[in-house]
């Protein structure tokens, strides 16, 4: 079995971003970038499947600028086998990402594609679902558990009301939720080893996909600021305020 894991380079989850009024965009200068946290979970899951002997090769792929190679390298250091960079200036919108991924899957016959459920920058939560449409294959979003049963994949999904279990036929697209696993740190020897692993570079044109976005970002603004910081000294005062000032109880 071959697994493909798409990984995206995003602003680190600890960074509090700032909107730059002049350029009408999020200020990304000198900001720490990392692998999208859900993609780390996806990479970890692929590695665990391989460690159980159920997978022969893990390929990681990213669409983005040259620096996305760092993100790929990171996944290789965790234990993925090889990488592909589809070089673009920015990370394109989910539909375009899904089209590029679909091309790779069709060329190379992956049995399972594990994505993050959501990028923490655009918060789109779409790419995996879109990829499943383009491949016309099964999909299991928000997975908190992945198992195998002969030729099928059994996944447990986190849904609004609780948990749901599905049996998916292969090939399949699965998206990782937070509680699927806790990703490992790459060890120093593995970081060294990862330097020898190959990262192929592709041009989106090689894949023959239309890179024109269908959505245009007109403006990026800061949300209205919440004025907080109010304090109360005691439970008594809290109850009084909630009752008589805010009128919410």
């Amino acid at each position: 079995m071959k697994i493909l894991v798409p990984v995206k380079r995003v602003v680190d989850y600890n960074v509090k971003i700032r909107v730059d009024k002049d350029t009408n965009s999020v200020d990304l200068n000198n900001i720490k970038m990392s692998m999208n946290p859900f993609d780390e979970i996806a990479v970890e899951e692929a590695i665990r499947i391989k460690e159980k002997g159920q997978c022969d090769e893990i390929v990681v792929v990213s669409l983005g600028p040259e620096q996305s190679k760092e993100t790929i390298r990171n996944a290789l250091a965790m234990g993925a086998d090889r990488g592909i960079l589809i070089k673009t200036e920015h990370s394109p919108e989910p539909l375009i990402v899904a089209k590029a991924l679909a091309k790779l899957v069709q060329q190379d016959n992956y049995d399972l594609i594990i994505l993050g459920k959501q990028s923490i920058d655009d918060d789109c939560n779409q790419t995996g679902q879109m990829l499943s449409a383009l491949l016309n294959c099964s999909v299991g979003t928000y997975a908190s558990k992945i198992d195998f049963d002969n030729d099928s994949i059994i996944i447990t999904r986190e849904i609004d009301g609780g948990l749901q279990t599905l049996k998916l036929s292969k090939p399949s697209v699965v998206t990782a939720d937070l509680r699927l696993n806790v990703p490992r740190y790459a060890s120093l020897p593995n970081i060294m080893k990862a330097k020898q692993k190959t990262i192929d570079e592709l041009d989106p044109q090689d894949l023959g996909i239309d890179m024109n976005p269908k959505l245009v970002i007109k403006k990026v603004e800061e949300p209205p600021k919440r004025i907080g910081g109010g304090k109360v000294e005691s439970i008594e005062e809290l109850i009084d305020k909630l009752k008589n000032e805010a009128g919410v109880i």
Binding site: D122, K214, L215, I217
Partner: peptide, 14 residues
């Protein structure tokens, strides 16, 4: 909202 609601994007569809 984008970036966990720390920015609001105005999107136009084509």
């Amino acid at each position: 909202p984008i970036y966990a609601g720390n920015a609001i994007a105005t999107i136009e569809t084509k």
